[in-house]
Design a protein around this nucleic acid. Structure first.
Lengths: 233, 233
DNA sequence: GGCCGGATTTGATTCAAATCAAATAGTCCG
DNA sequence: CGGACTATTTGATTTGAATCAAATCCGGCC
């Protein structure tokens, strides 16, 4: 573990309420790994071995059925995923893969389980984290059930943008292929959706996308869109 | 609060680790309400006033956009919903409605927030509960993104059935209209999906559905289906 | 028992998005 | 810088599910 890791660790909601001495004791059982892009952190169906806390880099959570695979969610610094599988000691429902190089805190499952049970502050941090995830997932389910592909893309872009009025350039959390998966559509459909939004002032190149007038996009999406979509932070 | 409520309260995962004296202190701030079918517990967009714990009856969580509405999940005895909105002090993302008469424990939001922060055992219970919900929601997202309507119905029925071999009769958690919403399809499509499964030994009447040979259905669904779908319990 | 009103089924048609199929634009390497 | 691979766009076609439209079933109630 590097000294530069500590601030990253402290920044995670998971540890927000944990005191210094407790934190030190917890981390004694853990180690940090630098992983390259495409490295697999865990595989759907396997038994939970470690809790992973993202210190840097982006991670994608994928669900698979047969030979199909779909990105379920992007995770980034501060996120601790697989908490549920670890806590319930159940097999992973998802496969986690690094989308780029990053550092991951590895926390042995049994140790984590014991520590959440014993340390209220850690459990409270987990509640905050899981609460944020619940809201993210609910938002996604609502999008999938109630919005069209174009509306989902609009909502997704707006969630990425600071809620200002002026033109904004947002950075997609992954390539188009991955964004398409997150939105539950094919890359071809995503491309068409972007094309459909171009007249509304969306210009895209690579993972940079510029929204000329967020208010206009919000109005377009908002006609049918959901209230209170806000992003976990 | 009736004396018959206590066993129901104790049965919820939320309180599994909470000791008697703590529990009594917590419940002092709460009250129990009997609510009729269709009663609304909370409305999307509003600020969290209460945490609700279902003691009996079924509750539906609905997301809405514009004038469309879709059922996101069924909840039943032991479930505490809206935990995330309460903990994060954020507006509800969903509307909760009684699907039948039932009793609900009402817990003032501020009191609950203070108590999760203060009581490790309660926080731990919340972690367990939220972990289960995470898995349920992830399962649903995977279904929506990877399976066809018929496959989703198959998976849904199998999740309802005890994992035996012989013929089983399962009870749908709500009318066909609601089940359709949960599966992300229209009632008409649900009807066609049931029709498509009839040759595989699925006979339906009202909310009772009989699966002649779960293994055969599992095989059919399993050809493309997900591993480890299991239901929260 | 027989009627009313909503829920489910069935049929015909439409439509959004997937799939099939190239063409084009980017990127990484040597 | 050029080649090879991958990612993205664009076009044509198919298809799963929605929508439109009845018909039928059902439960509650007088």
């Amino acid at each position: 573990m590097r000294t530069t890791d500590m601030p990253l660790i402290r920044r995670s909601r998971l540890f927000a309420q944990v005191g210094e001495p407790d934190l030190a004791a917890m981390l004694a059982a853990c180690f940090v790994q630098t992983l390259p892009a495409s490295a697999t952190l865990c595989r759907q169906g396997e038994k939970a071995e470690f809790l992973h806390v993202v210190l840097s880099g982006r991670v994608g959570l994928f669900g698979s059925a047969g030979h199909e695979e779909a990105l379920v969610e992007f995770f980034g610094a501060g996120d601790a995923f697989i908490v549920p599988a670890v806590v319930l000691d159940a097999p992973y429902l998802l496969t986690a893969r690094m989308l780029e190089e990053g550092r991951i805190l590895m926390w042995p499952a049994a140790a984590f389980r014991a520590q959440v049970r014993a340390t209220g502050a850690l459990a409270y941090g987990a509640v905050l984290l899981l609460s944020g995830y619940w809201r993210t997932l609910i938002g996604q389910i609502k999008d999938l059930k109630l919005l069209s592909a174009i509306e989902r893309l609009s909502a997704f872009l707006l969630a990425l943008a600071p809620r200002e009025t002026g033109p904004v350039t947002v950075t997609l959390p992954g390539g188009r292929r991955l964004v398409a998966g997150r939105l539950g559509i094919t890359p071809q459909s995503l491309s068409r959706a972007f094309a459909a939004l171009r007249p509304l002032g969306i210009s895209g190149g690579g993972r940079q996308v510029t929204i000329v007038d967020p208010a206009r996009l919000r109005e377009f999406a908002g006609a049918r869109a959901l209230k209170g979509p806000e992003r976990r932070d």
